[in-house]
Write a protein that binds this DNA or RNA. Structure first.
Length: 473
RNA sequence: GGUCCCUUCGUCUAGUGGCUAGGACGCUAGGUUCUCAUCCUAGUAACAGGGGUUCAAUUCCCCUAGGGACUACCA
């Protein structure tokens, strides 16, 4: 069996769509699973939609996610226009394609008329039967032309897809689609077939939205006399309303997820399980484990809603269990720069079980460096009262004030305070609760002894005094 | 409108003729004797509908309904 070669072929039109990331991942997984090659190709044939820097950005993100491609330099379609033109010319010479001089205005009108008459919008073959002489004259006169594929008549195209099975389409339902645009750049269809052929791609793994184009591609392979690769169409990623996943309904740019503090491991893990399953009940996979377990047979047919809640769960779990080597650096970037590394470590440890994504750290831990004012009523636990709270706070303050700096650790603080409240006939609600509120200004927080340690003696005493003042005022 | 594709809990999914239809997320409740989170336990909830085929259909076939993609000199 010949070598497996897959490719990821994005258009450099901006950010990397999360659905594209999944497509890239599946291509990578299949190639690596079969000791094959994973190649990158840049499809930049639409000059109008080019975004400067997008290509570099794409490559950077792919690399970040560990999806390394095996060609040192990607194939870039815009550098290959001559080749596409020659192949288009060849098809014209063989009477499998033809020059079309119709203006876009005429085409627009045609479409409009057709749809108003409830007909199927389709090219009417206006230029299909121009004589070679007429074409030569028009070309010589400098008239703009595109090259269209001459759709065979009365033929049934039979196709096979690894996920969707056998599909048949009649050529009468297909259009004389454009191969070469009037700016001499190829359309997707032409460039795609030529490049996949020349790159010796064995498996085309791409999103389901391409399935309707498959007959065109099959026909092109036939026209060139080339062997078509194996096709694998992936179910779409969907918005909550089941439409194709789009920008309008939330984040879709991989960059944005990264910026918000989603770990690449979590994103990859989650996205791998959309439209594919390992056939057992395992949910956590590293990239290597995905490679080992990947199989085309376990790809689904139904579109999958991109569920942010489940991504959050994966991400929270990766954060909690510290599964990513780069996690600390990424986490620290959301903390104020003037904090020491030691303090950042402690803060992260304190909150790591409370985060869906790392960016939440900035908000949820903010009381550490920025205590906001709170209502003094909050200091009193629901089962306590003003007097007991005051007592609790005062004896704690006295005790903590005398505690040596080297005893200021979470464990001893917890033991000591527990002893203290027992000795004074108080409850946890009389002591721990008001200390929490005093330190955090919140009624929900990590345990007060942990906060004491993170804050340090000086700052902690200051905040407890402040709380006592509040109660006395 | 046309072509093609799809249909198991709210969501991601397992299931390929006989199961109390399983797991995960979410949600709810309880537990871990200060809150929250984590963690543990339990609960909640699905085979779109109708016909066949069969001793037996979630599973095979047909129809209906619903959803989606595509329908550009964009990819």
């Amino acid at each position: 069996m010949s070598q497996v070669r897959t490719r990821f072929a994005p258009s450099p039109t901006g950010y990397l769509h999360i659905g594209s990331l999944r497509t890239a991942l599946f291509n990578y997984l299949y190639a690596k699973k079969n000791n094959g090659q994973f190649l990158l190709r840049i499809e930049d044939t639409d000059q109008a939609r080019l975004v400067p820097g997008a290509q570099e950005n794409l490559i950077k993100i792919l690399k970040l996610f560990g999806l390394v491609f095996d060609n040192y330099e990607p194939m870039v379609q815009s550098t290959r226009t001559k080749i596409y033109q020659e192949f288009a010319k060849k098809l014209v010479d063989e009477n499998k394609a033809y020059h079309c001089f119709c203006s876009s205005e005429r085409l627009d009108d045609l479409r409009k008329t057709q749809s108003e008459a409830k007909q199927v919008p389709k090219y009417d073959g206006h230029c299909r039967n121009l004589s070679p002489e007429e074409v030569a004259t028009k070309l010589k006169a400098g008239e703009k032309a595109v090259i269209r594929f001459k759709m065979p008549e009365n033929k049934t195209v039979e196709m096979h897809d690894e996920v969707y099975g056998d599909i048949k389409v009649k050529t009468e339902d297909l259009d004389d689609f454009v191969l070469l645009k009037s700016d001499n750049f190829p359309t997707y269809h032409l460039a795609n077939i030529i490049d996949d052929h020349e790159m010796e791609i064995s498996h085309v793994i791409r999103a389901d939205e391409w399935l309707p184009s498959l007959p065109k591609h099959i026909l092109l392979y036939e026209a060139f006399g080339w062997q078509a690769p194996t096709f694998v169409h992936l179910p779409l990623l969907l918005n909550p309303d089941r439409s194709k996943l789009s920008k309008r309904q939330g984040d879709v740019a991989v960059e944005d997820f990264v910026k918000k503090g989603y770990l690449k491991e979590a994103i990859l893990n989650y996205v791998a399980l959309l439209g594919w399953n390992p056939k057992d009940e395992r949910e956590f996979f590293t990239l290597e484990e995905l490679v080992a377990n990947f199989s085309l047979e376990h790809i689904n047919k139904t579109g999958a809603i991109f569920d942010i809640q489940k991504l959050n769960w994966f991400n929270a779990s990766y954060i909690r269990e510290n599964k990513s080597p780069e996690i600390l650096a990424q986490a620290f970037s959301f903390l104020p720069e003037n904090l020491s590394d030691e303090q950042k470590h402690k803060i992260f440890k304190l909150f790591s079980s409370r985060l869906d994504n790392l960016s939440q750290l900035a908000e949820v831990a903010s009381f550490v460096w920025d205590l906001v004012d709170y209502d003094k009523a909050m200091l009193i636990f629901k089962k306590s009262d003003l007097e007991k709270t005051k007592t609790g706070l005062n004896i704690s303050l006295a005790f903590l004030n005398d505690l040596a700096e080297d005893k200021w650790t979470e464990e001893t603080l917890r033991q000591d305070l527990n002893n203290l409240l027992a000795k004074n006939n108080l409850t946890a609600g009389d002591v721990f609760w008001p200390i929490r509120v005093a330190l955090s200004g919140q009624d929900k927080s990590p345990s007060p002894t942990e906060i004491l340690e993170v804050l340090g003696k000086e700052e902690s005493l200051k905040r407890i005094k402040l709380a006592i003042d509040k109660l006395n005022s």
